[in-house]
């Protein structure tokens, strides 16, 4: 769709340029014998011609501007749709303490990713699991991987090819929020998503 829009835009630009380049016909000097009436008529005609050309030019300009605006608008809408789609795929999913099973809220977030992944078959993603900083640093590395795997398995169960999804873990080493307390910890127990390739 983008390619054909570009061609339309190019054609319009050419038309606009052509209108600009063609100057109004210059007023030719006439023999001195011409009388005052005909001089006035000639002047009026040429002014009218110039006005009509100017008006035509203005109409063309306006049409081009309108098309351009419409095109930009369409592009904007498409980009927004694509960005929204990517936002859905990359939306972070959260977990309960020491758990890797998907909560209802998490499942709803992952469900929304499925149609987008299906409509973007070239898209490959990396899921990275994270934990809060309570518990064993070493066990948390494995728990982070388990969280990422849980999301991957759920996507696969919903028809997404597992070869499109890599998993990894940062354990408790890359908190989203520093500090202590459930408000902080709940933001750190998460699976994050990043594109590996195939982003449009």
């Amino acid at each position: 769709m983008q390619n054909s829009s570009r061609i339309v835009l190019g054609a319009l630009s050419l038309a606009v340029v052509a209108g600009c380049v063609k100057p109004p016909a210059p007023l030719q000097p006439r023999p001195a014998a011409v009388n005052a009436d005909s001089m006035a008529k000639l002047r009026a005609d040429s002014i009218a011609r110039a006005d009509s050309l100017r008006a035509e030019l203005e109409r063309q300009r306006q049409r081009a501007a309108d098309s351009l605006a419409a095109l930009r608008d369409a592009e904007q809408r498409a980009a927004t749709l694509e960005a929204d789609a990517m936002k859905i795929v990359m939306a972070t999913v959260y977990f309960d303490y020491d758990q890797s099973t998907l909560t209802d809220a998490a499942r709803a977030l992952v469900d929304a990713k499925v149609p987008v992944l299906k409509s973007h078959p070239a898209l490959r993603i990396l899921i990275t699991g994270h934990t809060d900083d309570r518990g064993s640093t070493e066990y948390n590395m494995a728990l982070g991987l388990r969280r990422a795997a849980e999301v991957r398995n759920y996507l696969m169960a919903n028809g997404i090819d597992g070869s499109r999804i890599e998993t990894n873990s940062m354990g408790e080493e890359r908190p989203a929020v520093e500090g202590t307390g459930e408000a902080v910890w709940s933001k750190n127990r998460r699976a994050m998503f990043a594109p590996l390739s195939g982003v449009q």
Binding site: R146, A149, N153
Partner: peptide, 9 residues
């Protein structure tokens, strides 16, 4: 060492 692949380590 511990080797994690999929959900299990």
């Amino acid at each position: 060492y511990a080797h994690g692949v999929d959900a299990n380590t």
